[in-house]
Each structure stands twice: as structure tokens, then as C-alpha cells.
Amino acid sequence: MDKPKLLPPTLRTNERYIIFNVLSESPIAYKDLVKSIWFSCLSFLGELKMSECELWVIRNLYNQKTQRGVIRCRHDMTEHVRTSLALIKQVGNINVIIKVIGVTGTIKSAKRKYLDFTDLKDFEVD
């Protein structure tokens, strides 16, 4: 037991999941993408706002083929993250446009609506 316990729902922070699509000339590696997202957010928002933002790029939801991914942030900072994503010009030496497709409240609905998870297990209710 070296982890703190999960907070009760009323004390947890409200989160939003931002689903984005990368338009680029050639395929983008996950590592470079995360680096440039963090760099752009830090330079645009600064360290203080960034701490408010609680940004996290979710690793196992990034799809190399469709170039879609998910970012987690706090619910009142989605506009800030959106603008900092728009201010990304290049990843490495490749020109990119990062387009936000949608914002959801849970990962489950993000998968269902935008990430084309057609596995039946994702829709099971238990």
C-alpha cells in the first residue's frame, strides 16, 4: 500500500478529454509529438497556468495510423489547451496542423464517439 487512496467523487477534479487529429506530410512519432505539445503549452501558458491545467497526453490511446490521440486536462482549461495546440507549427522538422475533433467527459465516450473502437467489450455494461 504505497499509493494514496482514490478520492471520493466530490473531491476529485473535473476532467475533460480532448481528442485531436494531426494533419501532416509524413507520419509523426509519439515521442516528438508529446515533446512539442508540452513545449508549446509551457511557452504559451507559463508554468503557473500549466500547473492549473493538469495536462496529460494519454499514451496508449495514440494511434499511429490515423494520427489521433487524447489529452486529459481540467474542465475549465480546455480553451487554453486548444489554443496552445493551435500554436504548434512543427513537430521535429515536419509541418503539422493539430485539429481538435471533440471534447468528452470520459475516456469511454471518447473511444466510442471519435476513436472507432468497435470491440464489443468496450460497450459492455457491468
Binding site: 480553451e79 486548444r82 489554443t83 495546440l85 493551435a86 507549427k89 496542423i97 485539429k99 481538435v100
Partner: peptide, 23 residues
């Protein structure tokens, strides 16, 4: 001035929103 500087409408709006206009 090039294709890679185009952005989607909602992103453009979010910049204006951050600069003091309501959403």
C-alpha cells in the same frame, strides 16, 4: 501564408475567447 498556417474555425475562436471575448 502557407497551407500549414491554416487552422480550424473553433481553434481561431478559442484564441479570441482567451483574449477577452465571451465564447
Amino acid at each position: 501564408k502557407s497551407i500549414w498556417e491554416m487552422r480550424s474555425p473553433r481553434e481561431l475562436a478559442s484564441l479570441t475567447n482567451l483574449l477577452g471575448l465571451d465564447i
